[in-house]
């Protein structure tokens, strides 16, 4: 299989003449794991079969257009007719046989790819992660490690990871393009997929099943770490908050009703929003849509609706609780204090 890659990749690169980068952070053409790779390879088989057919049929088509023009572009009605052939049974049968053959060529790798991506690999025990989709963020739970995190999952390099996906509300779809194909989060089904990263790095992902107003802003990141680094990361994630002196705003605005800050009194239970225990250690905020900088964090806290229209932190947290029930607004100083605190939660 690796031989194929060596062979095909430069040709595909040559095909990509548009001059635009095809290796964006979510490119399916840069396969960084075995699942993505097998899917990419089956794609290449289909692609080249298509190119071959296109060359032949399209060539004939073009040949006809160039060579069989009516003399002078237009002919009068009494101009002698061309040969009035009605068809050629032998040719038709040939075409049918050739297309069956080509379909066979395409079908075999496709079925192989389906089975490969749909079967857990033998050998190494996969790491299990339960993924839950919310409008519009992701929760990652590691049942074997006791770790819970939101929107950013750490995985070990070189070990298969078994993602079990479920939704808390509407349909979503879990997709890390560089690691492999997607799986819908469907209520009433226990669906799973396995992915594996070959090298350390940050892999971007995004929800691909339309899930409401801010579907566009339901992104995520998967961070692949070397096995030792992963173990260290997991152990750290398990711990409670490092900074146990929260600003008054946290209680005042009842952040803990929805968010978890493990280690704080009353901070264990909030599960409507992402777990914030180690929010400072993440690379992004608001489900992968902004880099995790104090400025972005402040903007997000100041008006979540601006970054992600219709989200429940705004609709239920800000509108219902702040305005309807408590009639208070965050002051600038409180916002800064909150940002400092959250940034400190490494």
């Amino acid at each position: 299989m690796n031989r194929w890659i060596k062979y095909w990749q430069p040709m595909l690169a040559a095909l990509a003449v548009s001059g635009c980068s095809l290796s964006g952070p979510q490119s399916t053409l840069d396969a960084d794991g075995p699942v993505a790779r097998i899917q990419y390879e089956t794609f290449l088989v289909t692609l080249w079969v298509s190119v071959a057919i296109f060359a032949v049929v399209g060539g004939m088509f073009l040949y006809c257009l160039v060579n069989f023009r009516a003399p002078g572009g237009e002919v009068s009605r009494d101009y002698p007719l061309p040969d009035q052939g009605h068809g050629n049974p032998l040719l038709e049968i040939g075409v049918i046989f050739v297309s069956i053959l080509l379909v066979g060529i395409v079908a075999v790798p496709a079925v192989y790819g389906v089975l490969y991506a749909g079967t857990l690999p033998e050998g190494q025990k996969p790491l299990r992660i339960n993924v839950t989709g919310y409008q519009w963020w992701w929760k990652f739970e590691y049942p074997e490690l006791g770790v819970v995190t939101g929107n950013e999952a750490g995985i070990p390099v070189g070990r298969p990871v078994e993602f079990h996906v479920q939704t808390s509300d509407v349909l979503h779809s879990f997709w890390i393009p560089r690691l492999g194909g997607k799986m819908d989060l469907t209520p009433g089904q226990d669906d799973w997929l396995w992915l594996q990263a070959d090298k350390p790095g940050v892999y971007w992902g995004q929800c691909t099943e339309f899930c409401g107003e801010s579907h566009a802003f339901m992104r995520m990141r998967v961070v692949a770490l070397e096995p030792e680094a992963f173990d260290k990361w997991a152990a750290h994630q398990k711990e409670g908050v490092a900074n146990t002196k929260p600003p008054a705003a946290i209680n005042k605005f009842q952040c803990l009703a929805c968010h978890a800050l493990r280690g704080l009194p009353g901070g264990e239970t909030g599960n409507r929003g992402p777990d914030l225990t180690h929010v400072g250690s993440r690379t992004s905020i608001a489900a992968g849509i902004k880099e995790n900088t104090p400025g972005n964090l402040k903007a997000w806290i100041h008006n979540p609706n601006d970054l992600k229209p219709g989200n429940i932190m705004y609709k239920q947290g800000y509108i219902d609780m702040w305005q309807n029930l408590m009639h208070v607004q965050l002051t600038d100083a409180e916002e800064n204090e909150l940002v400092d605190y959250l940034t400190s939660l490494k």
């Binding site: 023009r69 009516a70 061309p82 080509l102 379909v103």
Partner: peptide, 30 residues
């Protein structure tokens, strides 16, 4: 379903070949 879907390529391909066959040796008026 992948297999049944690919099967549709056969009649579709037949159609396209026949359209090209119609052009073959015709007097095409653009």
């Amino acid at each position: 379903f992948a297999l049944t879907t690919m099967t549709i390529a056969i009649p579709t391909g037949v159609k396209i070949i026949n359209w090209v066959g119609t052009l073959w040796k015709g007097q095409i008026r653009m």
